[in-house]
C-alpha cells in the first residue's frame, strides 16, 4: 500500500503545522511542510501530493479578518490547482484557521446554490480553548467513516459558523455538507454554551464540499492524537489512541484503497 503524500501549507503566523504533520505521520502518511510562497512560485507542484492540509494558527495575524490574507493568496493563485487536486481524487483538510482559509477562498461550501458562509467572532467575544464533543456524519467525507462521537479541543476566537440566510443553512444540511456538529452530553446537536463553544448556527463544527473531499473544521483533531491528550485521561479508562487519529487514519485508508 502506497504511502500518501501530504503537503502542509504554512504562512506567516501558522502555528499548528508541526503537530498536524505528526498526526498525519502517525496515521501512515508522509508529510512535507512548505511556506505558501514556495508553492506560489510554482503552483503545479501541488500535483506531487495527494493531500493538502492548511493547519491552524493566525495566518498573517488574521489582520484583515481570520484567514483572509492566506485565502486571498490561495484563492487567486492556487484555487484552480486545489480544485484539480480534488478532481483527481485528492483530499484537502483545513483545521481552525485552515477552515477559515478554505471558506474565505471560496473552496467551501463550493456549492452554487448557496451564498457565502462565514466563521465570525464567537458569541463570547473572545478566544476560548475548551474541549468539545462532536457528532460526525459518516458517508460523505473520506475523513469521517463512523458516527461515533469525537472529542477535540476547540481553540479559537472566530469560529461561529453563519450562512447568509436560514434557507442556505437548510440547503447545506440537505446537501449533506454539514458533517460535524457540536453535541451535548446526550449526543444531540446543541446551541447551548459551552457545548457549542461559539454559537455556530446549526451547531456546525465542520463542513465539506459536495464531494466530501474538502473538509474544514474548527476543532483540532491533531491535538487529540495521544490518549494522554484527553483532559480526563487520569480519571477514565484510557483510550487506545486519541480520537483525532480516526480522522487522519480514515483519510489515509481511503487514499490507499
Amino acid at each position: 500500500m502506497a504511502t500518501p503524500r501530504v503537503l502542509i501549507l504554512r504562512a506567516p503566523g501558522t502555528n499548528c503545522n508541526e503537530e498536524t504533520a505528526y498526526a498525519w505521520e502517525q496515521a501512515g502518511a508522509s508529510c512535507e511542510t512548505w511556506h505558501l510562497s514556495r508553492l506560489l512560485a510554482d503552483a503545479s507542484q501541488i500535483s506531487k501530493f495527494q493531500v493538502l492540509t492548511i493547519p491552524g494558527g493566525f495566518s498573517y495575524g488574521d489582520d484583515l479578518g481570520a484567514g483572509r490574507i492566506f485565502a486571498t493568496r490561495l484563492g487567486t493563485v492556487l484555487g484552480e490547482e486545489v480544485r484539480k487536486l480534488r478532481d483527481r481524487g485528492g483530499l484537502i483538510l483545513g483545521i481552525c484557521n485552515g477552515f477559515q482559509v478554505l471558506v474565505r477562498a471560496g473552496l467551501l461550501p463550493e456549492n452554487s446554490e448557496i451564498g457565502p458562509v462565514t466563521l465570525t467572532r464567537n458569541d463570547s467575544g473572545h478566544f476560548e480553548d475548551r474541549w468539545t464533543r462532536l457528532a460526525p456524519v459518516p458517508g460523505r467525507s473520506p475523513f469521517l467513516t463512523s458516527a461515533e462521537p469525537l472529542e477535540f479541543p476547540s481553540a479559537h476566537g472566530e469560529g461561529k459558523f453563519l450562512t447568509k440566510s436560514a434557507e442556505d443553512l437548510e440547503r447545506l444540511q440537505q446537501a449533506g455538507q454539514i458533517v460535524l456538529r457540536y453535541i451535548d452530553a446526550e449526543g444531540n446537536p446543541t446551541q447551548s454554551f459551552p457545548q457549542n463553544p461559539n454559537g455556530s448556527a446549526g451547531a456546525v463544527a465542520g463542513m465539506c464540499d459536495p464531494t466530501g473531499q474538502i473538509l474544514g473544521l474548527m476543532p483540532h483533531p491533531e491535538r487529540h492524537v495521544l490518549p494522554y491528550h484527553h483532559p480526563r485521561w487520569t480519571r477514565s479508562e484510557l483510550r487506545a489512541e486519541g480520537d483525532g487519529m480516526r480522522l487522519f487514519r480514515s483519510a489515509v485508508a481511503s487514499l490507499s484503497e
Binding site: 508541526e18 503537530e19 478566544f127 479541543p153 491535538r223
Partner: peptide
C-alpha cells in the same frame, strides 16, 4: 480559557 493552553499538542496535564 482565553489562553490557548494546548497548541503544539504537548499539554498532557491541563491547567484545569
Amino acid at each position: 480559557r482565553q489562553y490557548d493552553h494546548e497548541v503544539q499538542g504537548g499539554t498532557i496535564i491541563k491547567p484545569m
